[in-house]
C-alpha cells in the first residue's frame, strides 16, 4: 500500500543568531500532511509560520531535521534539484502576489510551465485554461498593473497550479486583499480543496482556516494545537 502522506517533517528546526540573540523560528516540528488535505497554519506574527512554509518549499534550509516531499528527502537536495522540485512538484502563492510586472496575466501563468520545459503551445493552452478556471479568461492579456488586488492573486494561484503540483504552499494569500477580493480567493481555495489539491496555507485570517480540513496553531516556533475540522466551510457545506 502506498504512503498517503505527501509532505512530512521530522524534528524540523530553524534557528537564527546565537547565544543571547538565538531565535528558534521553527523548533523541532513533526508534521504529516496527507495527499488532498488543506492545512491552515495560524498563529501570531513572528511565531514561525512563514519560516515553516519556506522550509517546506525548500526556499530555506533547516538548521536541523528532515523534510520529505512525496517520499523524497528535500532538505539535503542541491540548489539545482530544489529548483527542479519547485518547478514540478510545488506551487507558491505569496501575500504580495510577486507577479512579473512586464508580463501579461497569461504570460505570468505560463512562466512556470516554460521553465519546466513544456512546449510553448501547450504551456499557453494550459495557462488559458487555468485563467478560465480562476475566472480571468477575459483578462489574459492584461498587465498586472491593470488588474485589481484580487485578480492579481487569482493570477498568482493560476500560476501556482500551472505544472499540476503535488502541493500548493500559500503565504498569507489574503493579507493584502480587501473583503471582496478575499472572498474570491476563498472560493478558489474551496474549489481546489474539493478537487483534491493538497494545500498548506499560512494565514492570520480565520475565514481561510474555515476552508481547511485541519488547522495547526503555532507559538514560538512550535505547534501549540492541531485541530481536524469537519464542519461548514466558506461558500457551502462539506
Amino acid at each position: 500500500m502506498t504512503d498517503p502522506t505527501v509532505l512530512r517533517t521530522r524534528g524540523l528546526t530553524r534557528r537564527y543568531g546565537r547565544d543571547s540573540g538565538l531565535v528558534r523560528a521553527v523548533d523541532d516540528v513533526d508534521l504529516d500532511v496527507p495527499a488532498g488535505q488543506t492545512l491552515a497554519v495560524m498563529g501570531p506574527s513572528g511565531c514561525g509560520k512563514s519560516t515553516l512554509l519556506h522550509l517546506l518549499g525548500g526556499l530555506q534550509r533547516p538548521t536541523a531535521g528532515e523534510v520529505w516531499l512525496a517520499g523524497n528527502r528535500i532538505d539535503t537536495m542541491s540548489e539545482r534539484a530544489l529548483a527542479r522540485l519547485r518547478r514540478d512538484s510545488l506551487g507558491f502563492v505569496f501575500q504580495s502576489f510577486h507577479l512579473m510586472d512586464e508580463l501579461t496575466a497569461v504570460e505570468n501563468v505560463e512562466l512556470a510551465a516554460l521553465l519546466a520545459g513544456r512546449p510553448p503551445r501547450r504551456a499557453r493552452q494550459r495557462a488559458l485554461h487555468l485563467l478560465d478556471r480562476v475566472g480571468l479568461a477575459d483578462r489574459a492579456t492584461h498587465l498586472p498593473s491593470a488588474l485589481s488586488g484580487g485578480q492579481r492573486q487569482r493570477v498568482a494561484i493560476a500560476r501556482a497550479l500551472s505544472n499540476e503540483p503535488q502541493v500548493v504552499l500559500a503565504d498569507e494569500p489574503t493579507g493584502n486583499l480587501d473583503s471582496a477580493a478575499t472572498l474570491e480567493v476563498l472560493r478558489l481555495f474551496e474549489d481546489l480543496r474539493a478537487a483534491g489539491q493538497t494545500l498548506v496555507v499560512v494565514t492570520h485570517d480565520a475565514r481561510i482556516a474555515a476552508v481547511a480540513d485541519r488547522v495547526v496553531a503555532m507559538r514560538d516556533g512550535a505547534f501549540a494545537d492541531d485541530t481536524r475540522l469537519a464542519g461548514t466551510v466558506y461558500g457551502g457545506r462539506r
Partner: peptide, 16 residues
C-alpha cells in the same frame, strides 16, 4: 532582486 527571487520560487535554477 525581487524578480530573481520570484524566478527561483517558480523553479528557475541558477543557470536559468
Amino acid at each position: 532582486r525581487r524578480r530573481v527571487g520570484l524566478l527561483k520560487a517558480v523553479g528557475a535554477g541558477p543557470a536559468m
